[in-house]
Write a protein that binds this DNA or RNA. Structure first.
Length: 283
DNA sequence: GGCCAGGGTAGAA
DNA sequence: TTCTACCATGGC
């Protein structure tokens, strides 16, 4: 595909592996609106409007450099698909989610979002995050930014309860308090750590277990040698990979052995396909 | 009205 | 180290 980048517009001619519906609805992002005609995507304090016409994709945004990276446009997804297409089920999953790209999203936003995600559903996660941004994020005119860490640190636990975060509210308040004065160093530490020790550092935060840490690593730190095991992955392992393992940790290791450094991509195809298949969401 | 959702924590075994 | 009970909340 050919990508043209202007200051506020990105144009993709003959797109390959880019379908905005697949990208937004595969569970990696919670702040977006989508209609058949167009989609609005929010990340940190940025906003992009995506329209598809005649097989050409046009992205109007506030910072084309940010969204060129965000949409991972400098990557060959055809090669990734070929590599993770290890069996007929994977072929079907990849065919279903052919337009998926793993977004390079904001680390802090991913950390907060996936703490909220635990034992929760995507609809409620979206509503909680929307409330938090509307009440606490900067008003950008047509949308609200994700709140700064300083703004988040001002919020009492009761605010998160009001946002519908339930029993995760004290986890959020505690984790925000723990990182607020050392965020830059914490972030640099993670960037400079191998994936296993980065996961350990993340799980030391309240509300962050192995699965949430894997999601933060995948979507917020561009680590692809991870494999978040949620309820859908557990199901697809049991029902479609003939799995006899029981623990999430063992299932994670099984898939890491299968997909290696491309595990994160494979996981997204599986999650999206299985969830939509079982929920009878047709394309 | 019980089950489920992009699970994690604390305490017991 | 692994197992269990419990955790808010809304949609179905």
């Amino acid at each position: 595909m050919e990508v043209l980048v202007d200051s506020n517009v990105i144009t993709i001619y003959q797109p390959d592996s880019f379908n905005i519906k697949d990208i937004l609805e595969c569970g990696q992002i919670f702040r977006y609106d989508i209609t058949p005609a167009y989609a609005r995507v929010l990340s940190k304090d940025h906003c992009a409007d995506v329209v598809t016409d005649n097989g050409k994709i046009v992205i109007h945004c506030d910072d084309a450099g940010y969204f060129y990276k965000f949409f991972d446009l400098n990557k060959d997804y055809a090669a990734i698909k070929k590599a993770v297409s290890v069996n007929p089920f994977m072929e079907k999953a990849i065919n279903y989610g052919e337009g998926i790209r793993i977004l390079k999203n904001d680390f802090l936003e991913m950390l907060i979002s996936f703490i909220i995600s635990s034992n929760n559903n995507i609809g409620r996660i979206k509503r909680s995050l929307d409330f938090i941004c509307r009440e606490c994020g900067q008003n950008m005119g047509e949308y609200y930014a994700f709140p700064s860490l300083e703004a988040l640190a001002e919020l009492p636990e009761s605010f998160f309860l009001q946002a519908g975060c339930g029993y995760r509210s004290p986890f959020l308040a505690e984790t925000i308090a723990a990182i607020k004065d050392k965020f830059d160093q914490f972030y640099l530490d993670l960037k400079n750590s191998d994936t296993n020790s980065a996961q350990k550092k993340l799980t030391s935060l309240k509300g962050v277990g192995e699965k949430v840490a894997d999601c933060v690593l995948l979507f917020g730190l561009s680590r692809y040698d991870v494999f978040p095991v949620d309820t859908w992955i557990y199901k697809v392992y049991k029902e479609n990979f003939g799995g006899e393992l029981e623990s999430r940790k063992a299932i994670r290791q099984y898939f890491l052995g299968l997909f290696g450094d491309l595990s994160g991509y494979a996981q997204q195809y599986l999650f999206y396909y299985k969830r939509n298949l079982d929920s009878k969401i047709l394309k």
